Amino acid sequence: HFGWATTMRRSELLSEVGYESLKNAGLEIVQNKQLKKYIVLLFERNYKEITSKVKQLNPLINQLLIVRQKRFMRLQGFNFEPLDYPNLLIDRQFLSYISSLKDERGWLTRSLEDSLEETHKVLQLLKEELNK
């Protein structure tokens, strides 16, 4: 559990390849104004907000890795063992980083869930448009 508790993925969360292709082809090819509006909002607002926030998290993630390296021994795979468990429980710096990471993960999870809901709306509008 220590491995997962002290990690946050930095990988690319959202792909904009299809949207960039659409922009290059010209957004005017989407004739349904509501669909076009939702597509633009999804990529220009929702996804950009998430991507920006994840980039802002990089310093926290880097610091947490340093904190983890000083306080844990890496075992096999992604298993970590505290070097000094009793002191870890009262280590204010470690507890602060874990608390911050928890808050940021919560924000990211909620944002991704909201974006997933918006993505489903766009997909539904797209299906309706294609079935016309």
Rank of each mutant, 00 (worst) to 15 (best):
E20Q: 15
E81R: 15
I98C: 08
E44T: 03
E49F: 01
S96P: 04
L95Y: 06
T7A: 09
K23S: 06
S115E: 03
T119Q: 06
K36G: 04
E49I: 03
E129P: 02
Q56I: 01
R74M: 10
R45K: 14
E20H: 12
G77A: 12
N87P: 00
L64T: 07
K53T: 12
S99H: 11
L14A: 03
L22I: 06
S99I: 03
M73D: 10
L112P: 01
R10L: 03
E113R: 15
H1N: 14
I29H: 12
Y47M: 10
H120A: 15
L41T: 11
Q69L: 13
Y38S: 10
K55E: 14
K102A: 10
L88E: 00
L123F: 13
G26E: 02
Y38A: 11
V54N: 03
K55F: 07
S11C: 13
L57S: 05
Y85V: 10
Q63I: 08
L22F: 07
E28D: 10
D114E: 11
L13Y: 03
E129R: 06
E20A: 07
T119V: 05
L75Q: 14
F78C: 13
E118P: 02
I98G: 15
D103E: 08
I29Y: 07
S15W: 12
Q31C: 07
E129Q: 11
Y85G: 04
S21D: 05
K70F: 10
A25I: 06
L75T: 14
L88N: 00
K48S: 08
K33P: 00
L65R: 14
V40E: 03
F2E: 13
R9K: 11
I98V: 13
N58H: 08
L126I: 02
L108H: 04
P86I: 13
Q56G: 07
L83M: 11
Q124C: 04
L14Y: 05
N24W: 12
S111W: 03
I39N: 02
S111V: 11
V67M: 04
T7L: 08
L27T: 05
F43A: 03
K132E: 08
G106N: 13
F78G: 14
V30P: 05
S100N: 10
R71Y: 12
L108C: 04
L123H: 07
R105C: 02
G18A: 12
V122R: 05
T119F: 06
R74Q: 12
L125I: 07
N58M: 03
A5E: 15
T109I: 11
R105K: 10
V30R: 00
I29K: 10
I29A: 08
L130Y: 09
I90Y: 00
S52M: 11
L101E: 01
I98S: 13
L22M: 06
R74A: 09
K102W: 04
L42W: 02
G26V: 05
R74T: 09
V17H: 05
K23E: 04
G26M: 01
E129I: 07
S11Y: 14
W107S: 04
Y97S: 01
L112E: 01
S21C: 11
K121L: 15
R9T: 15
L14I: 15
K23G: 01
G77K: 06
L101N: 01
D91H: 09
L126K: 02
N131F: 15
S115K: 00
E49L: 04
L42D: 08
A5F: 02
K102M: 02
N24K: 11
L125D: 00
N32T: 07
L13W: 07
L75W: 09
V122C: 07
R110K: 15
S15K: 12
F94Y: 06
